[in-house]
Amino acid sequence: MKPRADDRAGEGPAIALRDLAKSYGRVHAVRGITFDVARGEIFGFLGLNGAGKTTTIRMLVDLLRPSRGSATLFGIDCQKQSRQARALVGYMPGELGLYSDMTGIELLDLLAHLSGTRVDTAYRLKLVDTLELPHADLRRSLREYSTGMKRKLGLVQALQADPPLLILDEPTEGLDPLVQQALNEILFELRARGRTIFMSSHVLSEVERLCDRIGMIRNGEIVLLSTVEEARRRGGRMVRVHFARPVERVALPPGMTLVSHTPERWNVRVEREIGDLLPLLATLPVRDLEIVEPALEDVLRSFYREVQP
């Protein structure tokens, strides 16, 4: 029996990109990005359409050749030792190119043969069940599949060999909320077993729910690289102050911004300790205080917006 893929994983982070760039003539799709993805984490790769997410991903699986720089998977160079690197990956492309005259099971079998590792049929069936893909449908021609069914099949083919690294390009696109939830559970279970998941997405709520760390690419450059918690903190907390009677606007301590206000209510963004605000509030007729944790979506949207002219 051939060794399982994770037995062959070398040293180093699951993914390491060093000055990775891809140009098409004068068009710079990816402009020298550098970051690591640690083993066993779920990493969200964010960006608007055309930002360079898919180009980066396709360089990781050696479908595209970088113009400069390097990428390694578990210390194995994606270009120089491409086959060894790809043996460690389960990849779901954003755009699934399927032959409509094949059946679902034919596709899974063909790709399992090409994976070079033994595929556990019981595990594959478990995935099929969890993603609510009826067994009978696997015998049907792919031309009869809906978009959602094709996406589910795409996920099964990526996961079926249980590789140490999953690279998923927009994995929840086209899935209904129940299947999205099922997929989340599968990904959490995989992380618990030490698998690394690198997923691109522009669904911010999904990234917030799933990911340990995020990287944001904009115009081919990494503009944010942090844990989800850190990113959320960047947005600052919002403090809503309700007054017992109307108050005049007063100057706020440094690091605090009055986002909106009425005589009865202030919305204050606090980027530092909330304690700095309390001495001021003690002098005012405060009826109630509400501290709202920032949503990651708001923070990330601000990064997205910076790209707009």
């Binding site: 396709r58 699986v61 050696d62 479908l63 086959r83 060894q84 790809r86 043996a87 990956v89 990849y91 492309p93 755009e95 699934l96 190119g97 399927l98 032959y99 596709l107 790709l111 090409l114 994976s115 070079g116 083919q157």
Partner: peptide, 17 residues
């Protein structure tokens, strides 16, 4: 044709030459 239809993404992401 496989490149154009993107089937190559499924095929060549596997450890084959």
């Amino acid at each position: 044709g496989e490149i154009e239809t993107k089937f190559v993404d499924l095929m060549m992401a596997r450890p084959i030459r």
